[in-house]
Amino acid sequence: MLEFIQGFQLSEFEITALILSLKVSGVASLCVLPLAIFIGYLLSRTSFWGKSLFEAIVYLPLVLPPVVIGYLLLMSFSTQSILGRFLLDNFGFQFAFKWQGAALAVAVVALPLMVRSIRLAFDLIDLKIEQAALTLGASPLRVFLTISLPLALPGIISGAILGLARGLGEFGATITFAANIPGQTQTLPLAMYRFIQTPGAELMAARLCIIAIIIAIIALVLSELLTRKMKNKLAGVK
């Protein structure tokens, strides 16, 4: 045990996996956040034909087995598919088996979590406050940017962190869609899975496990701190 702790200096392999994990999840979360805010606002404030169906599709990845998501992504974006072919031919770009593919898988899985949290945040804003802003001559866009968005910020941040954390743990969709390629798509969970599969690499797996736990704790504490700070600001505490 002592040896285990003393030897806790990250190996190059672990650093690669860690950085890749952060990169995949970070990029996916950042890219999908504006979309999540848009969808969250849409679901909270508007009603349109087919809203229930739209909502169901957005939330579907929450309940689908991740391997199904990976499979569907593979069907849609592999170079054999129409969309994948189109991207490759016109932009020379492909998702499958690249870190961007892993990011796409993470984005699909993280989106519904973010939307849920963000939608709730918009739901909780008193519409009357937005009405007051309208009577002061502020355009709907200005009301959104200066009133709705700042007031929803705690929910948006916690949604983003939730999405990020979910992304860091993404396994099924990623391994199905982007495969398990070291340095390319082998994120922390995927690396851990490989060690578990390899006889005699239990220690390596345990080390990755600890890293994963530490990252999760940091994310949760950060989220808690940010939310508290926002709440304090609203309560007028300096």
């Binding site: 406050i129 007051a132 309208l134 009133i147 700042p150």
Partner: peptide
């Protein structure tokens, strides 16, 4: 927002942030 009519509500409705 284009009517230029001011409105003071019963519950003030200040912007909390």
């Amino acid at each position: 927002y284009k009517r230029e009519i001011g409105y003071v509500f019963q519950d003030a409705r200040l912007f909390p942030h």
